[in-house]
Amino acid sequence: MSPRRMLVVGVALLTPVLSSIATLATERSASAATYSGYVMGYFKESPNQSGDSYALHSAVSSDGLNWMPLNQNNPVATPTAGMQGLRDPYILRKQDGTFVVLATDLKGRVFNLNNQYIHVWDSANLTSFTNYRRVRLHDMNTHSWAPNSFTTLTSGLRQGNAIEAPILVKSNTSNTFWLWGDSFSPANAVFCACQSSNVNGNAWSALNQRAYTRPINAKHATTTPITAAEQTALMNRWGTPQWNRLKSNNFPGRYLRHSSYALRLDPNDNTSTFRADATFYRTGGLADGAWASFRSYNHPDRYIRHSGYLLRIDPLSAGSDLTARQDGHLRSRTRGELFQ
């Protein structure tokens, strides 16, 4: 397939949005700030619908590939008008350095409704959201979808059976570009990514899932570069995860979960039992504060420990013998995601 130029806009009607929303401008900072991180906005869906959340969620990343959800993966903003739910959020940085958040006015998976409105918020730094309103885009008998805009060259990149919501992100530290896509078939809410250092030459390669970690159940995301101060402010405002997921490097679709108190490396089947079994809270080391211990989410008196060179969850506490507490010491590189 020959290269083609793709323009993605909400119902091809971005112009009315720009005229309706004060002084929206092209996505660049007036102060040309030095960006060192990224912020992601998203809503949540899971294949069995138990993890669905039609509100604005946010995550941050230092490298643009591995993401840390904020606010314990709970919403940071929820629509209060229209259908009182959102899909397809888009974060736009204005020329003055502040932000506007746009989103589809829809709660759930009913796609045959007619709704001419989108949700809109203003935000100084994404730690709070003000001036919430709904903006009418048109008077046609159809729905307003996914209000966002960007242009990129592609040649039919595809992972999974179907891809939506492409996101083009440039590395803050190199000439590398990432092209993200949200696959909804054969499984829903699966992020795929391609990488290029030669966008003009249309040279892209698919990334292995071990190269990135996205927030669990994240769907139709939006990504914007931010400064170190903005990233710190977001983490201070919304909090970093108090839990971890332990993801395999060479089998990136599998996670450590306990079964009959033994730890196994199993694929995520999106059941509530799996999510509970695969969620662990990071605590101070039971024997040495320089290390960490990991407490089971659904068996809070049990911690991960090794026994006979195998991992399991056993009852541990400050009163346990020293050897048992030392067996429960681990170190992790980053905090992970909550299965919910």
Rank of each mutant, 00 (worst) to 15 (best):
D266F: 10
Q159I: 00
S196R: 01
L18G: 02
L246F: 09
Y212G: 00
G289K: 10
S20W: 05
Y261D: 14
N114Q: 14
A276N: 09
T227L: 09
R134Y: 07
H220A: 14
W238H: 04
G85N: 13
E164T: 08
T142E: 13
S171W: 05
N249E: 10
Q84G: 06
R4V: 12
A233K: 00
P252S: 08
T98G: 15
D88G: 05
P75C: 03
D314Q: 10
L234Y: 00
R302W: 11
Y42D: 01
N161P: 05
Q159Y: 01
L14D: 05
C194F: 06
D314A: 15
T213Q: 07
G97V: 12
F184A: 08
Y212L: 03
A229V: 07
A221K: 02
N73T: 09
G156P: 12
N236W: 06
Q95M: 11
T151V: 11
N198W: 06
A59H: 01
Q231H: 06
K219E: 01
D314W: 08
S196Y: 03
N188L: 13
I226T: 03
M1Q: 09
G336M: 10
I216H: 02
Y38L: 02
V190I: 15
L86N: 04
S123M: 04
M1V: 13
D139Q: 15
V8S: 04
T271W: 09
H306Y: 11
H329W: 09
Q49Y: 05
K44G: 03
Q72C: 04
V76K: 00
S317T: 11
G328A: 09
S58Q: 10
I216C: 00
F184N: 08
L70T: 01
V8Y: 02
R331P: 03
R245G: 03
L92Y: 02
K94Q: 06
N249Y: 10
P186D: 05
N71T: 02
A12N: 15
S293C: 12
V11E: 12
S332M: 02
G181D: 03
L86H: 05
L56S: 00
N161L: 11
Q72V: 04
A324R: 02
T130W: 01
F280N: 06
G97M: 05
H220K: 11
N250W: 10
S171H: 10
N115S: 13
K247G: 03
A318M: 15
S29Q: 14
P47A: 10
R302G: 07
T15Y: 13
G64F: 00
